[in-house]
Design a protein around this nucleic acid. Structure first.
Length: 594
RNA sequence: GGGGGCGUGGUGUGGUUGGUUAACACACUGGCCUGUCAAGCCAGAGAUCGCGAGUUCGAGUCUCGUCGCUCCCGCCA
């Protein structure tokens, strides 16, 4: 094919192109060799076009086509032709036409692929990850990555329109305490010292506000060395922004506008907005979680007061110990077998619950191993509060630690919601969670930790409690939740040095430590820091949700396994002694691996 | 750190209470075939059942260990 140029993508040819002389280049997707006629589906990123090799048109080319195999890279010149009557393929975008081959060049051969690119069944993930370049040829991943691209483009256009400035921040930066474990990078020219890869550009974007850039955004990689999940990778991408002279409402408006634009552009869905807002407390009370899936009802109810004096000691003792009793009406689930109930109990235990109390509501009363402990009044209050009808299953969790009870029953709610098919796949329920506590007590470290991060502004009126009653202080923080997933979080930041120092005080971060770890921020706060705030959205999760898939790995071209390895490149790998020496590093491996 | 699932030709799956030749589909190789598009028909090659021990007359199957992938808890400001 020499110097010939590609004239079209496969997949962009239509009936209107009939008669055109075209040159296509791509991969052999499949071949159907009739001995006489040979058909090739030629694939590139835009789709597939059928190439017909007819010995009557060109015998030499036809015979050459016999050698074609799956995934060969070829160039084909030929005429776009309308397919004969009755051979149109309505399942194919280009199904009305075919290209009658006049020239064929094999640009490269291919070994037999370890899996079929067009495979209809799933391929195990380790094989896919090892041959990621082949996996990425498959239409599913291509669609995801192209959708991701469109979301990113929409985002950039949106922020540009809103007068944001995209500014890059360093990847080689300073390790900071608090938060996730850092990925460290040794410094060759500073032996014994390390950079950290950023967990987020948090401090840099605040500094940019102090520098007067006013509206910053960045679509940026962040790094956290924590254990992986289906929705967590060690490197992930945030849509990160920060604005000066704004309040919470400004953030809500900007982000709602962004999501509305994204959903319109890539899904042609008109998102309802403004998004609902729920305080942290209300989210817990009604859904048990701070990232509620509001696509279905089935809300939690607080039953604590009903059972304060109950003969059922599990309940009354818990109440006496300051605990909480929560209930949930699993509508129509009174038929659940003992096994199903045991499964629910096991699920509750995963989240730390001691057990799960259940009561079946039947036509002539209730059924439950614990029913005998309850008075008529208690049963009445229970069924009334949970609005129970015969056929319903009432689930209750109690725990001295309120968070445990909320989480366990909240997760049961999600589980049962799925099981009962209450969750519509194509429904989009974004909402804001507001009024988070500023601090959370950490048993392990015997001190308070910032729930969001140490630069989050407390609510002004609560400042007085910071010393004496830190739990009472609310943060000017907010999370964005979509269909039960946290897809973003941010806050109005502290912009006064005295408040920042008070915050460090509450976190038991000493003056010296604060100075060595965050001195540059404290200094900067003294040079005219404007009020500012921002938010970051998890791009990978957002793409995952919009794609309707289960794992962010399928939104990332080259993801890591659960052990944070790359099966294609075999990273992380050992390095030479020389490299280690240059970096003044010695490795001490507790147990010999391999 | 902990709990669960999976691992069988290239790929995806079967494989009964442990029983002798490890099955099926797709892919692959060769042949036939001029309208297929999940092409068809015929023939063929391809597996020490992740790895290592153990139990047993006998292990794909049971036990223990180990490795890999995965889901979850902890962790992820």
């Amino acid at each position: 094919m020499g110097t010939r140029k590609r004239s079209h993508y496969c997949g962009e040819l239509h009936a209107k192109d009939v008669g055109k002389e075209v040159t296509l280049m791509g991969w052999v997707h499949s071949r159907r060799d009739h001995g006489g006629l040979i058909f090739i589906d030629l694939r590139d990123r835009e789709g597939v076009t059928q190439i017909a090799f007819n010995p009557e048109i060109n015998a030499a080319i036809h015979s050459k086509a016999h050698d074609l195999r799956s995934e060969y890279v070829i160039a084909v010149k030929g005429k776009v032709s309308k397919r004969p009557e009755g051979t149109i393929n309505p399942d194919l975008k280009t199904g009305e036409i075919e290209v009658l081959a006049e020239e064929l060049t094999i640009l490269n051969e291919s070994k037999t692929s370890p899996f079929e690119i067009s495979s209809r069944h799933g391929i195990s993930e380790d094989v896919r990850l090892k041959y990621r370049y082949l996996d990425l040829r498959r239409s599913g991943l291509q669609e995801n990555l192209i959708l991701r691209h469109r979301i990113v483009q929409t985002t950039r256009n949106y922020f540009n329109r809103k007068k944001f400035i995209e500014i890059e921040t360093p990847f080689l930066t300073k390790s900071t305490p608090e938060g996730a474990r850092d990925y460290l990078v040794p410094s060759r020219v500073n032996p014994g010292r390390f950079y950290a890869l950023p967990q987020s550009p948090q401090l840099f974007k605040q500094i940019l506000m102090i520098s007067g850039y006013d509206r910053y955004y960045q679509i940026v990689k962040c790094f956290r060395d924590e254990d992986l999940r289906a929705d967590r990778q060690p490197e992930f991408t945030q849509i990160d922004l920060e604005l000066s002279f704004i309040q919470e409402d400004d953030i809500y408006e900007i982000i709602e506008g962004l999501l509305v634009a994204i959903f319109k552009e890539v899904k042609n869905v008109s998102l309802m907005h403004p998004f609902p807002r729920l305080t942290y407390q209300e989210a817990l009370a009604r859904y048990g979680l701070d990232k509620p899936d509001t696509r279905f009802e089935m809300e939690l109810k607080n039953l604590t007061s009903h059972f304060a004096d109950s003969q059922f000691k599990v309940f009354s003792r818990a109440v006496a110990a300051g605990g909480i009793i929560l209930g949930l009406n699993a509508r129509g689930c009174a038929e659940y077998s003992r096994k199903e109930l045991d499964n629910l109990t096991d699920l509750a235990k995963v989240y730390g619950a001691q057990g799960l109390a259940w009561i079946k509501v039947v036509s002539d009363g209730v059924q439950s191993p614990i029913a005998k402990f309850f008075t008529e009044t208690e049963i009445q209050q229970l069924t009334k509060t949970l609005n129970a009808q015969p056929g319903d299953l009432l689930l209750m969790v109690t725990d001295a630690k309120h968070k445990v009870a909320y989480t366990a029953l909240g997760q049961l709610r999600i589980h049962i919601g799925h099981k009962l098919g209450l969750i519509e796949q194509d429904r989009w329920c974004p909402l804001w969670i507001t009024e988070f506590p500023l601090l959370e007590y950490n048993e392990e470290e015997k001190r308070y930790l910032a729930m969001h991060h140490p630069f989050t502004s407390p609510v002004e009126e609560d400042l007085v409690y910071l010393k004496e009653n830190p739990e009472k202080v609310k943060a000017r923080a907010y999370d964005l939740v979509l269909n039960g997933n946290e897809i973003g979080g941010g806050s109005i930041r502290i912009h006064r040095k005295d408040v920042q120092q008070a915050m460090f005080g509450a976190l038991k971060i000493g003056e010296d430590e604060a100075k060595s770890k965050f001195g540059f921020l404290l200094d900067a706060l003294e040079y005219g820091a404007p009020p500012h705030g921002g938010i970051a959205l998890g791009l990978d999760r957002l793409v995952m949700l919009i794609c309707g898939i289960e794992s962010i790995r399928d939104t990332i071209a080259f993801p890591k396994t659960q052990k944070a390895t790359c099966l294609m490149t075999d990273a992380p790998s050992q390095v030479s002694e020389r490299q280690l020496k240059e970096l003044s590093l010695k490795t001490v491996i507790p147990k010999l691996t391999k």
